[in-house]
Amino acid sequence: MSKESDKKQKTSSFKHLGVLRKALSKAHTGEIIYKTEREEDGQIIVTTGDLINDDETLHALEKLLTESIANCELITERIDEELENSTPPMVLTRAMNDIHWDAETLEELKKTFAKLPPIDVKMMPLHRYGYSDGLTYLMLYQESLKDEHFTTVKFFNECPAYTTLEQQIKVLVLGYCLGLINPQVSLKGKTKGAASSRRMSMASRILDKIRGM
């Protein structure tokens, strides 16, 4: 096998995080089914965009988030109009508190997140839902406010030295999976009506002005 194909084999894919995001940010009911590269199977039950807060789900999530995943899919039974619960599943924040990645995986995750287009970050007091490092998420949110074209690369560069790469990656993974991090275009397109459009336009111009002050 050539060196190039060796390299390709070692490059991790994190598409399974997109599956988790899809399941949690829309009101899916069904199952996330995955297989690790070590041929271990896992499944996570999703109910209207929420997860069961039990040890079985916790372990399945921890494995999904830390192992190399060969295949992952969401089997949807139905999609409701609204999420069962608009707050983050506690089992996910519990899992994020506990897991660790090795240095190589962290670098892979960093490279992967760095490819995302400019992002908007929605504020969520994650510490209230069991996540132990709400301050790093707050930092991500505050940095995003300052910059009209905020990217994850800027976040990595602006983060103070006292936050580790793992802390930075964890808030990105959490924000991504919960749909709190979105492409910037999501706030600046169509609005709900003429009055909304006027308020949106004013807010957008004031934002630009204050960012430049």
Partner: peptide, 26 residues
């Protein structure tokens, strides 16, 4: 800035956000 972001989020059309989500894969 935080207040203005909240204002914009309130006024945004959710459907657009959903469309955008689909193109936001790792």
């Amino acid at each position: 800035l935080a207040l203005l972001e909240d204002v914009m989020r309130d006024e945004a059309d959710d459907e657009l956000e959903e469309e955008a989500l689909d193109d936001f894969e790792l």
